[in-house]
Design a binder for these strands. Structure first.
Lengths: 194, 194
DNA sequence: ACCTGAACACCGTTCAAGT
DNA sequence: ACCTGAACACCGTTCAAGT
């Protein structure tokens, strides 16, 4: 490491990565701009060059979370297979992200729900719904699934996945993995007897 | 108001009520023990008599939230009517609580997901699932709904409600109210054509 | 452009002391 | 039992100044 007068490549990225690690390891209350700066080896005022204030950093963190999640969901939606396979695949992706990034997911939705939330956050949640909508409309086209407003059907599916993740966050991953297929099947089959 | 050397009736309750108001009006970042103490008219050290530290207050706040919510859910589960009516009623209760107490609900699950979460929090979430389980087993008894592990069926329903609430939090209540019945019906009918 | 260092107001927590 | 007041270490934010 040669001595460098200012900072390394990308302080912004370093701060975000460090923040995510702290969030996962020690929770949101332990997140401090000054400590992030210390870990990055810069003065406590340096982060303000990249994030106007603390909530700006939190929003950026939430944004990266939604970007990763929607990316994986879109990928799962694009993999070939019939509707039921696709749905199970998306469910696994969503729930595995949720359990592997529990504190981040809490932050993501907490920031999205804030009155001063940047519109990018809601847009990304929309993209998340779009990926679910994709397999719904495709399933409707092939006649594999029930007709009706695809937006409502997609919202039902996305709700179940998000709620399952929330309710099982903190539980052992194996436990959630064991429950998830059954839940998806109930969703597919419905509550009425056939 | 007669002068009183120490404090009024129940500082603990005053602090919790004030905290909930602040949370709803200005978000979790604005919650400060010192400010709560100031609003209550006591010294900044007084709250420590009732809450060991800040997270203890947050946990107590989350607890009151879950208590209110599970109470309302149990009441909705106990009202007479067939399965479908009961499910719609519970959905309305859950979602109306969620939209009316968005920041509190975020806090409730964030604290429940914390590694040092008190077990009362998880127990209350269990009670919430129990109230859903109630109408499921009753519906299975009367043959109104699909047989199978009632725990999995209840978890599917609870997941959908929780997820719907999360995804629609921040949106206009009328919008959520308009979407909810459709979502519940998709849940009831299932995704496969009949 | 990017960062430093000092300054300010505020915070959570602790603890001896008061009633 | 319940609260006060002072003290400590820490925090977010701002701003003139440095390179």
């Amino acid at each position: 490491m040669t001595a460098r007068p200012y900072h390394h490549g990308d302080l912004r990225a370093v701060l975000l990565a460090s923040a995510e690690r702290t969030l996962a390891e020690r929770g949101p209350a332990a997140l401090s701009l000054r400590e992030l700066a210390r870990e990055a080896g810069v003065s406590h005022a340096a982060p303000s060059r990249h994030f106007r204030d603390k909530t700006a950093l939190l929003d950026a963190l939430a944004l990266t979370g939604f970007e990763r999640l929607t990316g994986r969901m879109a990928a799962a939606a694009a993999t070939p297979g019939d509707f039921r396979e696709g749905l199970h695949a998306m469910a696994r992706v969503y729930v595995s992200f949720a359990l592997g990034n529990a504190a981040l997911l809490d932050l993501m939705y907490a920031r999205k729900h804030a009155p001063d939330a940047p519109r990018e956050l809601t847009e990304l949640v929309g993209r998340l719904l779009d990926s679910v909508m994709g397999i719904i409309t495709e399933g409707q086209r092939t006649g594999e699934i029930v007709p009706g407003d695809p937006g409502v059907v997609a919202l039902t599916v996305a709700s179940a996945l998000q709620g399952f993740a929330t309710l099982n966050s903190g539980a052992a991953p194996e436990e959630a993995d064991a429950l998830l297929p059954g839940v998806v099947d109930v969703l597919v089959t419905g509550l009425l007897p056939r």
